[in-house]
Design a binder for these strands. Structure first.
Lengths: 301, 301
DNA sequence: TACCATTACGTTAACCGTAAATATG
DNA sequence: CATATTTACGGTTAACGTAATGGTA
């Protein structure tokens, strides 16, 4: 494969298409001098005369006529490529792959994107819902939703969507039935339903909102699960306390099915991030999706 | 139509084809640095990321995958074009158009090329046999055979094939029946069969071979034609003298059907030329054909 | 560590425009 | 004479290589 004179081929195609050097020059936005030089260089390179020229008319040689077919193809393919890329860049079409956990997906991402998705039905959205870590490149994910204290991976671009409180919640019924909790120490006598998706599921690092004093409490769990929905359901039914992200229990808190335990002490905050592989040069569908997500979570906050 | 970054497209195609920048660099004979810069420039130009790269593997974006299809087409078309031109340049194939007069064609060009033609049956030869002047460009003639004292057209390349004597011939029978001819003046009492393809068909400019002295003689013609073959046939049948090119009566002179009249005086020489539109960068079939013609006529001389 | 991609920077060469010359109808 | 192509020349910029840097297995 050669890199030589691709430019010359495009110039040649234009010359033949227009039937004149000056016509081609006008189209290409260069001078006839440049056109002439390109053609000369091309002919020298190919070792063959492509077109006989008098000042008034051009005539293709046999080699020129044959070469023109390919030169046309080169230009056509190049134009095609640019057109297709422009469409993918500017239009909300093609595919958009979003990686998230099933819980976040169902409870927040899907609600956030629902109306936007139905407004753009040329866009096919694929939700990669999985609890274990996925490689964005391998899975060709355009956007990943991640929750963590901070993102360490420097090779990705991060867009914070929401600050997420961790909180300890329980059903009002459970709290009535059990010993009152006014400080972290009181938790020793309570049931913690642990979700082992989090690390150190049984360690709670409280800080007093008033004094900022830190308090580490370890609790044993009789009930464990790897599913947030299951855990909150258990809590609603009065089986114990559960540590959850505020986002995951917004409804339950609003309806009073669950209430926060010792709100005077806070657990470490998490940040919900959207992550992309690149910060710039993104197709419109990606940047627009990020905007929709940001707007949704900022409105909710 | 754009001229931008065609080179970058070819580089991109090579990168994707190889799955690595360094592989592409090796194939293209440039450094990975150059490859990286080309891809970057292309991405910036397109406003979109084409491939995600970690140092160990590459992964196409959606836009990149789409663009690759076209980039491949660009390279394929460019290669195709070069291949076809190389074939037309180096192989004796395709078409070869030779312009000549019917007489020269039948009597000399065809015999000169006959064996060469049958040795290359991929070559289709077209004889443009016509007595009036033809425009080589309009008729797409690769080679024209022309006979004249000299070629004035400076835009063509000329290859002298043979110096052609004009001579006055007659049948031995005619000469026996008529008054003897020893000097130009004696022609006044003879019949000249004139061929009006030549200009001044009735004017004969003799020069004495011995003294170089010039002698202009005008003769009236009772018999005229525009066809050399017809004229020589008439001469063979004893109808008169005829002024012909030596080339046109070689056989008859050898067999004794015709003999030269007053060989002590010569008529102006002509030169048989092959003419092409360009001197350099000619396809092999043209240069080879010229070689065959030159060899043929030089051997005959 | 070994291989790969990126980046900054200086160099080279391709590319182009101006302008004058040449050719054509 | 008007229009079109060629060519020489000089300037601009794109393209490249070197070498140093950062990542990844």
């Amino acid at each position: 494969m050669m890199l030589d004179n691709l430019r010359g081929m495009a110039v040649f195609a234009s010359v033949v298409g227009h039937g004149s050097f000056s016509g081609a020059a006008r189209q290409l936005g260069i001078t006839t001098s440049a056109v002439s030089q390109q053609i000369r260089s091309l002919e020298k390179d190919l070792g063959v005369v492509l077109l006989h020229r008098s000042t008034r008319k051009l005539s293709l040689t046999e080699a020129g006529a044959s070469f023109y077919e390919s030169a046309k193809d080169v230009v056509t393919a190049a134009d095609q490529g640019r057109i297709k890329v422009n469409q993918l860049r500017d239009e909300l079409a093609g595919s958009l792959r979003i990686a998230t956990t099933p819980e976040l997906g169902v409870n927040h991402i899907l609600p956030a994107l629902s109306t936007w998705m139905s407004a753009h039905d040329d866009l096919s959205i694929y939700f990669l819902a999985d609890n274990h870590y996925i490689d964005m490149i391998d899975e060709r994910a355009d956007i990943a939703i991640r929750m963590s204290p901070q993102i360490k991976d420097s090779s990705v671009a991060t867009y914070p969507l929401a600050e997420v409180k961790q909180m300890l919640v329980a059903s009002p019924h459970y709290l009535r039935q059990h010993e009152k909790i006014t400080k972290p120490k009181d938790l020793a006598n309570h049931q913690l339903i642990s979700i082992d998706l989090m690390k150190d599921p049984n360690t709670l690092d409280f800080s007093s909102i008033e004094t900022g004093k830190k308090n580490r409490v370890k609790i044993t769990s009789r009930i464990q699960t790897n599913n947030v929905f299951l855990a909150t359901t258990l809590a609603k039914e009065g089986h114990g306390l559960v540590r959850v992200m505020s986002l995951d229990v917004q409804k339950e808190l609003a309806s009073g099915e669950l209430v926060e335990v010792i709100p005077e002490y806070s657990l470490p905050h998490f940040v919900l991030y959207a992550v992309t592989l690149d910060r710039e040069q993104q197709p419109a569908k990606i940047t627009r999706c990020l905007e929709v997500l940001k707007k949704h979570f900022h409105a909710a906050a």
